[in-house]
Design a protein around this nucleic acid. Structure first.
Lengths: 177, 177
DNA sequence: TATTGTTATACTCTATAACTATA
DNA sequence: TATAGTTATAGAGTATAACAATA
């Protein structure tokens, strides 16, 4: 399946964005905003700065693995980390190697399957992950310090639902092909 | 300036994520959700599919330029497009060349400055941009079809404010360095 | 001398392909 | 023969550096 071929948004030759009475006019704003936020986080190098504040010299993908392990609260296989991060295996392999080299994670043998190993944070890794998350959330909390509690709760709730709905719809999308 | 060095999130050795009474616990959910949405749009190749539905064989950056021109509703310089997209000049130069090659945009001389040229969509480019935006918004509207109107309005409002606040804070951040 | 844009190159993040070891 | 992981390579997207033309 593909996206609908769809009629032009307005009469041919209409040059502007959606009219005010367009039923989708509110959505027109959501997509660019999500793009803007995503780009801002990347370009602002928030992740890298929070890592530096935690005393680490690691890039975003490596921090993602470390935080995934911290959140899991139990050793994970490479494949399980990849699933949770929604990336492919080889990508995780490299990040884990970088974390290992810095003594932030270690591998332990999987007692039930000698093909796999389990990855767990070291004490240093866990402490660094805590410092990192605190630093990142602290920055974010400051940015939202002026927000009414109700708005913060609404944002969290709506964003959760949006992510779920979009993910589910994309999954069906792929399945139909 | 850098992010605060910040104390560990919990007592040393505490392994889990923030406690339920953590004042930042709601924020803990926002960041991963934004990441998830961004990754979902990329991996779902929504942009590419909408472009195909509009009869175009263009990638995301090129579509970004075309939509920027459509939204502007007037010819723009390369530098102005770069500013609006928040990317650097050379990037825009290449996308415009690709769009030119396909007859979707054309260059006109800037009467006041012979160093610059103005980029404007051709009729075909404008029609394609309209088809593209309609297709993309249609998909998005379907994903949110079940949402109460109030929730959609709240999401738009909160996301707008979030993007503005985050962008402003990052700008101050950079300025302090 | 400052600014606009182009060309060429490099970097970040993630994916695919080919292979090894174990199940 | 299927699965977990690794190594090597490729691709998309964007940035930096060096340069040209005009202001």
């Amino acid at each position: 399946m593909t996206l609908e071929p769809a009629e032009p948004a307005g009469p041919s030759g209409s040059a502007g964005p959606s009219e005010p009475d367009d039923p989708h006019s509110d959505l027109l704003a959501v997509l660019p905003r999500l793009t803007q936020l995503s780009a801002a986080f990347t370009k602002g190098r928030l992740t890298e700065r929070a890592a530096e504040a935690a005393g680490l010299a690691l890039d975003r993908p490596a921090m993602g693995v470390l935080v995934t392990l911290r959140t899991a609260d139990q050793p994970l296989r490479i494949g399980e980390i990849a699933d949770r991060m929604q990336v492919v295996g080889p990508h995780v392999t490299r990040q884990v190697q970088a974390l290992e080299k810095r003594g932030l994670v270690r591998r332990v043998a999987d007692p039930h399957d000698r093909r796999a190993s389990l990855i767990e944070p070291t004490a240093a890794g866990m402490e660094a992950a805590n410092r990192y998350v605190t630093s990142l959330l602290g920055w974010f909390a400051e940015a939202l310090a002026d927000w009414p509690r109700q708005d913060r709760e609404d944002l969290t709730r709506l964003l959760n639902r949006l992510a779920d709905d979009v993910t589910a719809r994309l999954a069906r999308f792929d399945a139909e092909e």
